[in-house]
Design a protein around this nucleic acid. Structure first.
Length: 154
DNA sequence: CGTTTGACTACGC
DNA sequence: CGCGTAGCCAAAC
């Protein structure tokens, strides 16, 4: 029996489904999303850990081709909280505009504070129902209570 | 069909 | 901390 080769299309679908769970005003990282998906497709776990994030990036890139408006691709950023598209690209501007529209703020280095806007993952029940893993929280353990979201009006 | 490129990251300077 | 690099796979050329 021939070993099944990776299924990029299926992988992309899974990625997109996860991205659809990201709430407004929050962001997830490529690596975080990759970590939620089991290293299927016969790919070595070690390899997946190292390069899964890149495939997630590929999945996001694919969105631009299919133009699926149900996928909030703009809520996916890199591990530094920055936009990974080329700064001069139109996509980067659009992504930043959409995030700002959701009240996500950028610092002077054009980076998002993941501790403030980072996603902590979908509902555990949803995760389990889809055979996925809970992602690592992007936020440091909140001091006490959830600090009320401060909307900077300017 | 061989090359090049990249919407990533961890790590070393 | 910022910057450069290695590592690896699919797609796009």
């Amino acid at each position: 029996m021939i070993l099944e080769l990776p299924d990029p299309a299926g992988f992309y679908e899974t990625v997109w489904e996860i991205v659809r769970q990201i709430p407004q005003s929050q962001v997830a990282t490529y690596g975080q999303i990759a970590g939620m998906i089991p290293p299927l497709h016969g790919i070595a776990a070690a390899d997946y850990d190292r390069f899964g994030a890149r495939w997630v990036g590929d999945a996001m890139n694919a969105v631009s081709r299919i133009d699926d408006e149900t996928i909030p691709w703009h809520r996916v950023v890199n591990s530094k909280g920055g936009i990974s598209l080329p700064e001069e690209s139109k996509g980067a501007a659009l992504q930043r505009a959409r995030l700002r529209h959701e009240n996500v703020t950028f610092d002077k280095k054009e980076r998002i504070d993941l501790n403030q806007f980072g996603w902590n993952g979908p509902d555990p029940l949803w995760v389990e129902a889809h055979g996925l893993f809970m992602p690592k929280s992007l936020r440091n353990a909140p001091p006490e209570a959830d600090a009320p979201q401060q909307l900077s009006l300017f």
